[in-house]
Amino acid sequence: MSDKAVDREIALECRDLHKHLGEGEMQVHVLRGVNLKLYRGEISAIVGPSGCGKSTLLYLLGLLDRQDSGSIHVMNELVPLDKDGEHTRIRGENIGFVFQFHFLLPEFSATENVMLPMRKLGRLSPKEMEFRAVGLLEEVGLGDKTHRLPSQLSGGEQQRVAIARSLANMPGVLLADEPTGNLDVKNSLMVFESLTRLAKEKGQAVLIVTHNPELANKCDRILRMRDGLFIDS
């Protein structure tokens, strides 16, 4: 297998995804048959107006929500529709998340927050987990703040801890929902740079939902969405 072929290995694929939100007369057909392939080592951005279904798609792909119809494959494994335990397992092993808000656990230090997914997966010893967590924090530029609580970090630093946490279990897919939406320009660039650099280095498929055209233009691929469908790719 050539290096190029490895680069084009499919990490996540969805076919004909449909999703409705709301009930009765208020029901909205948010996703209308979305098809998408994410490749390892490639950074994709979804852009589009508010309410077009970007975040809904991201949560479906991250198995945090269930589609009405259609299929999702993660690392070539078909995700069963109604098995919460399987969703959780696949998510824990293969998918990392970065959200608009960092959602760090305030009672845990930066290192401990990064170790949380590793503790759940249980593949490493406590020493190895700590070593890896500190290493990831160093890679996002927080090597000197590993023992600080989230409340002792700035917004940008908190988001970088969240990035380190999303990479903790070396997932094949990284999903980011407006990861810089809550940051100033300087911090946005720093967070985006950390996210994309690490993902590239580790050969992960990255899908970023963003309203920021400047950040979208830095991605390998831009997916434009309108009314629950991609309009080009």
């Binding site: 945090l64 998510r91 824990g92 808000f101 959602f103 656990l105 759940k120 279990n169």
Partner: peptide, 16 residues
């Protein structure tokens, strides 16, 4: 609730 949701997103099960 948000911390619970984020734990779920990391692979923590309902049982956890």
């Amino acid at each position: 609730t948000r911390e619970i949701a984020i734990l779920r997103s990391m692979g923590y099960t309902r049982g956890d």
